[in-house]
């Protein structure tokens, strides 16, 4: 197996084109365990970390641009990003352990396409877009269009994710991400819930809600969103959102949780994440809901 470390996007595309079957990676926190377990990873691996654009985090007037290979630890250390998109940052801060976060990237977490990937529901809730490079140039799609099944993405051969674009919240808008695992850390999500919403004078005017680990891919929950938009997030609205989230699940039964448990917890986390996001939207600058 060959190791490639291209310095530019074009160079990376050149290798992908000339060496069919090669794969890209960033932090290698999924690739290395796959190698150890004996999985065939093809003729070569392309390390994207040396490409400047994939390792940059920039704040523009209207959006954040986060390189696909930026380690999670850089995101959690970025106070400005945490201020604007606390839910995305707390999701990045839940991947693996501190050691893993010094390597693991959003690009890798999304493209590994685990149904339980922590960053995906948070990115979807925040309306994130993925910028994709190939020999034909770049295209931009919603993050929720990337995973199509466990371990599978919509990327065509020769394509890879360069960066994520996330609009900066306007007005009283904030996001939140909650994840349940049986233990405190170092485990895979039983359920993850990402919420972004906008408040206006105590009323919720828009919402995006996404769930992880409850179906083969991330699940947007329009019924839960509809249940809270136009309300003051009263108990009835929260109960309706919670019920809609539970109903949207199509989970598996495994040692981490039963189907009934996952459905139930999806509702609980949705309700709680709505509460945290609403608090943040109405009290900007507070650390409410921090997971650590």
């Amino acid at each position: 197996m060959k190791y490639y470390a291209p310095a530019t996007i074009e160079e990376a595309i050149g290798v992908l084109t000339s060496e069919p079957g090669t794969r890209v990676f960033a932090g290698a926190t999924d690739v290395v365990p796959q190698m150890r377990s004996g999985r065939d990873l093809g003729p070569g691996l392309i390390d994207l970390k040396k490409i400047e654009r994939l390792s940059a985090v920039t704040r523009q007037d209207d959006m954040w641009v986060i390189g696909a290979a930026v380690p999670a630890a850089q995101l959690t250390a970025n106070a400005d990003l945490s201020h604007d998109l606390p839910g995305v940052v707390e999701a990045a801060g839940l991947i693996g352990s501190d050691q893993v976060q010094s390597r693991s990237s959003l690009g890798g977490n999304v493209c590994n396409a685990s149904p339980a990937a922590d960053s995906v529901p948070a990115l979807v809730a925040a309306g994130a877009r993925a910028v994709i490079a190939s020999g034909d140039g770049t295209r931009t799609i919603l993050v929720e269009e990337l995973p199509v099944g466990p371990g599978r993405t919509s990327l065509a051969p020769g394509e890879f994710v360069v960066e994520f674009e996330i609009d900066r919240p306007a007005g009283a808008t904030a996001d939140a991400y909650l994840r349940l695992i049986p233990r405190t850390e170092m485990d895979i999500a039983v359920v993850g819930a990402g919420v972004q919403l906008t408040m206006d004078g105590g009323t919720c005017t828009s919402a995006r809600i996404a769930l992880g680990a409850v179906a083969p891919t991330v699940v947007r929950v329009p019924d839960a969103e509809a249940a809270i938009v136009g309300t003051t997030l009263d108990d009835a609205a929260l109960a309706a959102a919670s019920a809609a989230a539970s109903a949207a699940c199509n989970p598996i039964d495994d040692k981490r949780g039963t189907i009934a448990y996952r459905q139930h917890v999806a509702g609980v986390l949705t309700k709680r994440a709505i509460g945290i996001a609403a608090d943040r939207a109405q009290n900007p600058g507070t650390a409410n809901g921090s997971t650590h």
Binding site: L178, R179, L180, I181, T184, L269, R272, I276, T291
Partner: peptide, 12 residues
């Protein structure tokens, strides 16, 4: 608190 990897909630 952090035990559950979830933020505190006194209600539950």
């Amino acid at each position: 608190g952090a035990f559950a990897s979830l933020p505190p909630t006194t209600e539950a």
